[in-house]
Amino acid sequence: MTLKTYFLPTVILITLIVLLINRHKLTPSYNKNFIAYLVVTFFVETTAHLLTVYYGNNIPLYNFQMIFEISFFYYTFYKAISKSSVKQIILYFSIAFLVFAIGNLIFYQTLYDFNSYTYTLGSIFLSFLCLYFLFEIVILSTNIINPFQNFLFWVSIGILFCYLGNLPYLSSLNVLFQNHDSMVTSLSIISKVVNTLLFVLMIIGVLCQKKK
């Protein structure tokens, strides 16, 4: 048990505590769902370590967590984006994504291999949603509130760094496991760094959020 093992769960726990203390600033109301998201993510990261120690494989857990997390972010942007045509695209793509993810989990890459196709598909569309949301609140919005005082502004930037930063590594994870197993641990620092950045930006976001 090393500091490295508990670093990310600790960051998540700190983020959760900060959001709980400042939950009155998490407006609109759907932003309060991030508290539940952080609770789930904290237990996933903690359980993932225990699965590695006792069973040597935490991939099935991360396959389910991936579907939960991406779907959560899709829902959040569905609520946050105002343009109805984009909302419809999010709704239809979310349904298609879930069908694809479940099919991939059962029939193709299956439970015990990292579902890289699901991650790649989900993260690319999620990145587009982040970019559109930033475009909407910075360029299209007539709201006089500074975007820097918007919680989701910071979260969107964090998601972009997290998912695009992870994409080259996680999309090739199965190949690395098969051919360059020793590189997996070394490259996992990428995930730790970009995930940490996402949670740090959540903290900045809630602290900067203008209370309505």
Rank of each mutant, 00 (worst) to 15 (best):
E45P: 09
V44G: 02
L26Y: 02
F68M: 01
F97H: 05
F43E: 08
I35T: 03
A48H: 04
M66W: 00
T41A: 15
T76Y: 10
F100C: 08
V39T: 01
A96P: 03
V44F: 00
S82P: 00
S82F: 13
F34K: 03
H49K: 15
P60T: 00
L26E: 00
T52E: 15
Y62E: 02
L98R: 05
N63P: 12
Y75P: 09
I90W: 11
L38I: 03
F34P: 04
S85V: 04
F97P: 07
K83I: 13
Y92A: 15
L26R: 01
V53C: 02
G56R: 12
N31I: 01
F43D: 09
F72K: 06
K83F: 03
L26G: 01
F93C: 01
A36T: 15
Y74F: 13
F34Q: 07
V40M: 09
Y54N: 14
F64R: 02
T27K: 08
I81V: 06
G56H: 03
K79F: 10
I102F: 12
Y54C: 09
S84F: 12
K32H: 14
Y30A: 13
Y74V: 06
L51H: 07
Y37C: 11
F97R: 02
V39Y: 08
V53H: 06
K87Y: 07
F73L: 13
V86G: 09
A101T: 02
V99N: 07
K87S: 04
F43T: 14
I81H: 04
V86L: 15
S94Q: 01
N58R: 09
A101I: 03
Q88K: 15
A96D: 06
Y74G: 05
Y74I: 11
G56N: 10
N33A: 14
I95D: 14
A96L: 08
I67H: 02
S94H: 01
E69T: 13
Y62W: 13
T76N: 13
M66G: 08
Y37E: 11
I67Q: 09
T47I: 13
T52A: 14
S85G: 11
S94K: 07
Q65E: 12
F72Q: 05
S85T: 14
N63E: 04
S82T: 14
F64C: 02
Y92T: 13
L38E: 02
K32A: 14
L26W: 01
E45T: 08
A80W: 09
S29T: 04
G56K: 03
A96M: 04
Y55H: 08
A36W: 11
I95F: 15
N31W: 05
K79L: 15
S85D: 10
T27D: 10
Q88D: 12
T46K: 10
G56A: 09
V99P: 00
V53W: 09
E45V: 07
V86I: 14
S29E: 15
F100Q: 10
F77T: 08
N31R: 05
L51I: 06
I35L: 06
I81P: 01
L50D: 00
Q88C: 05
Y74H: 08
Y37S: 10
S29A: 12
A48W: 00
A96I: 10
Q65Y: 15
A80Y: 07
M66R: 08
I70F: 02
F43V: 09
T46N: 12
